[in-house]
């Protein structure tokens, strides 16, 4: 995901803004990282360039 995507994303639980933690990136996008809710602290993973913003109870796939 490009960093500008952060302008339109929010925590699905409380609609608060998210803080980006980059683990791996290339010239134009974030490949691995975490999005952390600035309100409730819930962590959403970014894997292979795709942020997973499903609420925790809907994430059936392993997030490793």
């Amino acid at each position: 995901m490009k960093e500008t995507l952060l302008d339109i994303l929010c925590c699905p639980l409380d609609k608060a803004e998210l803080e980006l933690e980059v683990i791996r990136e290339d010239d134009d996008e974030i490949l691995e990282g975490r999005l952390v809710c600035t309100e409730c602290g819930e962590v959403y993973p970014i894997e292979d360039g795709i942020p997973n913003l499903l609420p925790p109870d809907m994430r059936e796939e392993a997030t490793a």
């Binding site: 925590c11 699905p12 803004e17 913003l53």
Partner: peptide, 29 residues
């Protein structure tokens, strides 16, 4: 909501987000 759909969309060069409908997007976006 489907991870495979997200991967295909990203491969097509479109920014992809795994989410339940519009619930992960800020107001007035």
């Amino acid at each position: 909501i489907n991870p495979e759909a997200c991967r295909r969309t990203r491969s097509a060069g479109i920014e992809a987000v795994r989410s339940d409908l519009t619930h992960a997007f800020l107001a007035d976006s």
